[in-house]
Design a protein around this nucleic acid. Structure first.
Lengths: 339, 339
DNA sequence: CATAATTAGTTAAACGTTTAACTTGGAGCA
DNA sequence: TGCTCCAAGTTAAACGTTTAACTAATTATG
């Protein structure tokens, strides 16, 4: 398990170290025979180039920062966790490493930036989910490539991987309409979040298109964070004030689960009395007897795409302002039914 | 935002680069005045030493790997996530970075090791939670320092940060006994996991000490993973077969929550009909109306300690086989009451 | 046939640190 | 005075890569 260097490989293959380096980078100036000889030696010694030495000459660290707020990281549903795993997975192919950092969701006046930024230990960063504007402003000063996932700073100055939330919201609502529902409610938290707001827009568009009028009593968007408990509360407000709602579109699965719980507690049955559809497809909650219909979001793929974008952008800093929109897919399970 | 080097600092302070380096490492050979002068320059230029250059000469990467299985990473309760955040937090003080990798919980015959091991891009690693023995065997071949957290390979060859689970199980059960309970049940999943088994031992010890006989019908350890759904199932088996149980000690909060849910569904009230205590203190579940009594585990601190251990061990590879036992603390909330 | 162009490699400098070995100017001492 | 010691630096080599510039041998061209 000794650590061999490029010199050892060169010696074994009877070539110069430059040749070894060129083989590694698949340079055309090398003949097939030499290439093969060198690759054999690399294999035999289990040689891996030193990242430090590489970093020193290339002036790159080989690291990418992944930033999210700690409430996102610690939340019950593994939404951003999956995205992270996607970036980590794709990072292999780019010979990059991912450094994860969480920041406080109320990034105070003199909160400090993630260490890898101050230390200059990354070549670029991926920002997942909504983060405080103050953080973004501070980070922009270091001119590192930035890619957003599932959020984009209002000035829209960076590349982004986003869900087609409006289309998704439209499809979810349309699903309920197609099942014959007319009194369709919506619950959402933190409606200032662009993603959630877009889902809401999709909801309204679908109703409008079907000629169903939008009833404000059926809309509950007061809660501040789209978590289970808030779904529970929103459902309580909604159903105690309205008796004729037959279907509910929750802005995400967490709130949908909360709402289901409320309905269960208050003696209503899903989907017999109320149909419910969520969004995200994170509800692998076996405890709930009624599997949730939802809009599936390709979380891993989003991470993969984000890593591709940041990697390109590190190599070519000109490539700014790219946008990737991924579709959400309707998944029909047991929580919605024909009326 | 240019990246200054040690040369720039040296020039500004009118000293050699060696002097700058010595100041950074707080070497005694430097006079207070020179030191001050250099520090000023460092500050003014916002100089940060290049990790690559450092790594090259020190033959260290400055990285530590953090390994857990993906079911641990993706699970609902942020137990290991908190531990991870603890390591990340402490890493600052040691000028280390943490690389997170997940492995499959059934680490197949020819599954590959985390990339940072193959790449030799870490100086040591922290393994969190139970991982497959096959993985451990493979990793041992690379002789890197290893620290376990909340688990220890059966050969006990490495340093470890563990919870005093036996004591914790004892205290939890004793709490129920002190409240006057006699028919105290236990539910656990994956009882082959040393931590859970120790909690079970603590349960038995407490009963024994109080002169209460251990009733095997009150013990349900068939489930394979201590998650909510399995807590629900375990409670179902237990309470449908036994009518006189008045208290329950669940091996962790996840199972406790599942059990509470079952009791709720089957019309029983907590704590009026049954007292429940969990373990871990991860149940920040606002949706549950009855806050759970539990044994608090200092998760962040465990991460901090693990990072301290691995950092020491990287500097001094002789320091093997250290053991840190952290106590669990009884937290009484609303789910347990006097009988 | 002389020369230009191409191919397949090699040489050597550079990247930014750390640190052992060396220097220099006094202070302390007999 | 002459010597040793010490304090406070400096010099220079080394770490393992990448890559521009060079070279030598072969092939193509007029």
């Amino acid at each position: 398990m000794t650590n061999y260097t490029i010199k050892d490989v060169a010696k074994m293959a009877n070539v110069s170290i430059a040749t070894v380096s060129l083989v590694i980078h698949d340079h055309k100036r090398i003949s097939p025979e030499t290439k093969h000889k060198v690759q054999q030696a690399i294999e035999k010694l289990n040689y891996h180039p030193s990242r430090s030495a590489r970093g020193l000459v290339s002036r790159k660290t080989g690291n990418v920062g992944f930033i999210l707020t700690n409430d996102h990281f610690l939340r019950t549903e593994p939404f951003y966790t999956q995205i992270f795993m996607g970036t980590e997975f794709e990072a292999r192919d780019h010979e990059l490493y991912v450094l994860l950092a969480t920041v406080d969701s109320d990034f105070g006046e003199n909160a400090s930036l993630p260490r890898f930024i101050l230390d200059k230990n990354i070549d670029g960063m991926i920002i997942a989910g909504k983060v405080p504007q103050r953080l973004i402003d501070k980070m922009r000063k270091y001119d590192l490539p930035i890619v957003f996932v599932d959020y984009l700073a209002p000035d829209k100055k960076n590349s982004v991987v986003a869900i087609d939330n409006e289309e998704g919201g439209f499809l979810a609502t349309q699903h309920l309409i197609k099942l014959g529902h007319k009194n369709i409610a919506f619950i959402g938290g933190d409606i200032s979040h662009p993603s959630l707001n877009d889902r809401f827009t999709g909801y309204k568009n679908a109703l409008e298109k079907a000629g169903i009028s939008i009833v404000s009593k059926y809309i509950e968007t007061e809660e501040d964070y789209p978590a289970r408990a808030n779904g529970y509360n929103a459902a309580r407000k909604l159903f105690s004030a309205n008796k004729n709602i037959t279907a509910l579109f929750a802005c995400n699965d967490a709130m949908a689960i909360g709402a289901m719980q409320y309905l269960k507690d208050s003696g209503k049955r899903v989907p017999d009395d109320v149909s419910i559809i969520g969004f995200d497809d994170v509800a692998a909650e076996v405890m709930i007897d009624t599997p949730l219909s939802t809009m599936r979001v390709p979380k891993l793929e989003m991470g993969v795409e984000a890593m591709k974008l940041i990697s390109e952008q590190i190599k070519n800093p000109g490539l700014i302002n790219q946008k990737i929109l991924v579709p959400a897919e309707l998944i029909v399970r047991k929580s919605t039914r024909k009326i």
